[in-house]
Design a protein around this nucleic acid. Sequence first.
DNA 1: CGCCCGATGTGCT
DNA 2: GCACATCGGGCGT
Length: 195
Amino acid sequence: MSNLPQRFYQREVTLVARDLLGMQLVRQVGDQRVSGIIVETEAYRGEEDLACHARHGKTRRTEVMYGEAGRAYIYFTYGMHWLLNVVTGEVGFPAAVLLRAIIPLQGTEIISANRTGRPEKEWCNGPAKICQALQISGAMNGIDLTTNSAGLWIEEAPPVPDSRVVTGTRIGIGTVPEPWKSIPWRFNAILKESE
DNA sequence: CGCCCGATGTGCT
DNA sequence: GCACATCGGGCGT
């Protein structure tokens, strides 16, 4: 399958978040493919969105979000977790999609080893779990996801029909004021009986 | 299964 | 100082 082109990411962040469902996140570990199907995303949109890290303007931490669409915005939080986002839209406008969950597809032995002792359902059902399972950290912040050169990219795969997409409010933003707290910018693909 | 809470470091009010 | 786009252990139901 071919990589999603930059054009895919150069759109409104909510559209990109919706359309990333079903696509395949691929990490190259040595010569092994470690991958999964994206099933949950969230959109973070501009300085006015008070849940978005760019709410305080451009800083060293958030500058990747202001750059080229299709780059990885990876940040550290809660003292121990890395989270992976995809930059979208026009250069100069900060917006990104948080990848919250994938269904493991390839390299599951590596994923299992990275998620020691945990049941398969808990391998990649959270944004920090994805990074742990696929060995993604801040060293990859800013890399280009439209090429394979940095060992992390997203490939085109069968899209998820509207009938199997559910939206909801974004997770973990409890102290953010309205309307941002309740805006339905979380996208969830309902596949099989899992999440 | 759900709720509660501690871990742990960085960025910014 | 404090809030944080989280996770997992512990314990009650």
